[in-house]
Design a binder for these strands. Structure first.
Lengths: 334, 334
DNA sequence: TTTTTTCTTGAAACCGATTTCGAAAACTGA
DNA sequence: TCAGTTTTCGAAATCGGTTTCAAGAAAAAA
């Protein structure tokens, strides 16, 4: 059933039907009601493709994330943000569509894909600063919002990582710790990882504490396994830390495991603090003290900013979402 | 840049350009190469909407899941399946598009939405058997695959829940347990919950063990909180179980917590076994023995079946994916 | 009542592809 | 060389909407 069929049935023109659907003012009340009733009756929904073709608006938001870094759909941090993002854009009339490198299209980058689909905007997740594809998208004419990374010239949303680091270190210092080590997310271009490492260093400096040699160890893409290795290195260090600040909860979990495996206990021997507050955190033994990223707000604001960007109301903002300190049981007074 | 522009540039007709793009045979080698080279040069991608409009094929797969039951995007079981599903359909040329009840469209059901978008197929997740919307979709002309539930007249994919239950109970029985209780997913129409409860009962019967009064307790949508309450009830029972088979890992985690809070220990006092093998399972103390659902296979086969369905190669299958027994440390010989 | 203004309406062009079908061009073979 | 085939090509219709604009109808002003 098309607007042509409807037009014929009602003895009006397709143009009129279209106008009713789109709430144009130049339709008389009588005609409008006649058409509206009929539309309701047959539960008419226009064809999205035809609509997009002529309006050049698809009401789709493209979503990309980078599987390579292991931060895929199944990472709880990511999926929580997407969940919230989805709800918010839907409230604005958009739907989300996942980017793909498609065998059929033989496209080797996401921008081409999104161009092909004519998405109205793109949200990019968790990537490194040198990623070519991310830059391609940012520099394109399609509105883009980047989550979890600041980039000049792009609209970005991030958690207040500096604050989070300060909270963590101040807390540990408050408990009397002075020998505090850091497990960084990775060595390389991951933005969050770099920022948290810098945040750690700054917070230590502000507390006039030295960072002992070997007290920063690097994970690999925030994974459990790499966190475990990093913690082992910290334990093998000549000086042993009394507290460890991990750049992610997953690595914190790994650290706890490594500490236990070394015959030591958390928090009695070593305090551990994480970052993220994924669901896992409260199931660890001991329950993990951590810095919570507000995934709901991140997703919601990403959506808001993107929609504004699409509507040309504003461009290029760095939006920072507050973090929250979550005290549980993995840290102890020294 | 459209095929018309290209046609003009190359002094051919739009029809010819289209034919080259779609590998029609009736184009001479010379012309074909001329066009192909140019397409490459300008990195041309046709307009998806225009294509869909004329071919009536959108190369999009609709995905629905039910937030109400808490089995949203952020549930690790769900997102792992989607992840695998996504990869498989992309290999076949499709992309995934999330269903939405959209403020703009004012649609109050997913079928209308998917009709509007002209998706080529739909995958439905985790619902109860009486869900009207699921039925609407199944009975529609759009190919549908349902994950995690069997329904007559629909193509479905499920884990081998019966086998999983048998494995769990046989294992516990092998360890000498006779007083085994079950925490069910929920009281109501959830398919997985019902099947596992039945599976529990059958496995107990096969082992000629009685199910003591009050030894089946119900959670609410598999949540932690409800699992905790259920376990508390089991502990308050006049006879105390020596082992608990939980219908999900999350509820098993809750059970462990409840047992500990009651001053008892797992597995020394009570053995606990879960279902799913989500990431969490290996982080619990003790590490959770559980039945692993093969999310990768579930997603992959859902994709395969759906594509076959779309291509009209086959319809209506109940595909069952094997489960795997994962022994960790939450169960002990009695 | 006539003129002017404001409301309604629909014909037609357009969005960017696909596909049919007839005709022209290029080959056959005699 | 010419009739008969086979290739190659493109005009035009189609998919299902939107939007402009001219014109007719109705209402308001004179």
């Amino acid at each position: 059933m098309t607007i042509y069929d409807i037009a014929k049935q009602l003895n009006v023109s397709p143009a009129t039907v279209s106008k009713v659907i789109n709430n144009y003012p130049d339709v008389s009340v009588k005609t409008r009601e006649k058409v509206q009733n009929f539309l309701k009756e047959i539960n008419f929904h226009p064809n999205a493709q035809a609509q997009s073709l002529s309006t050049k608006k698809s009401w789709m938001i493209g979503v990309v994330y980078y599987e390579e870094t292991g931060v895929g759909l199944s990472h709880p941090y990511f999926s929580a943000i997407i969940d919230s993002f989805k709800k918010s854009v839907e409230a604005e009339g958009y739907s989300i569509h996942f980017g793909s490198k498609n065998s059929r299209l033989m496209n080797d980058n996401y921008l081409d894909y999104f161009r092909y689909r004519n998405v109205d905007g793109i949200v990019v997740f968790c990537t490194d600063q040198n990623d070519k594809q991310t830059w391609q998208m940012i520099e394109s004419d399609i509105p883009v919002v980047v989550i979890d990374m600041k980039i000049d010239g792009a609209t970005t949303i991030t958690s207040d990582n500096e604050l989070g680091c300060r909270m963590a270190i101040d807390y540990l210092v408050g408990l009397g710790h002075r020998k505090i080590a850091h497990i960084a997310g990775c060595r390389g271009n991951n933005w969050a990882s770099q920022v948290r490492e810098r945040g750690f260093i700054e917070a230590m400096t502000q507390n006039q504490l030295p960072i002992l040699p070997g007290f920063i160890q690097y994970g690999q893409d925030f994974t459990f396994e790499s966190g475990y290795q990093a913690m082992k290195l910290l334990l093998a260090n000549s000086e042993r830390p009394t507290a460890v600040f991990s750049a992610s909860d997953l690595m914190a979990a790994a650290a706890i495991e490594a500490i236990n495996d070394a015959g030591l206990r958390v928090p009695e021997d070593i305090s551990v603090i994480g970052f993220d507050d994924i669901e896992l955190a409260k199931f660890l033994k001991p329950k993990l003290t951590t810095i919570r990223q507000n995934t709901a707000e991140l997703g919601k604001n990403a959506a808001k900013l993107l929609v504004k960007h699409i509507d040309k109301i504003q461009t290029e903002v760095d939006f920072v979402v507050p973090v929250e300190f979550i005290e549980r049981q993995s840290c102890k007074k020294i």
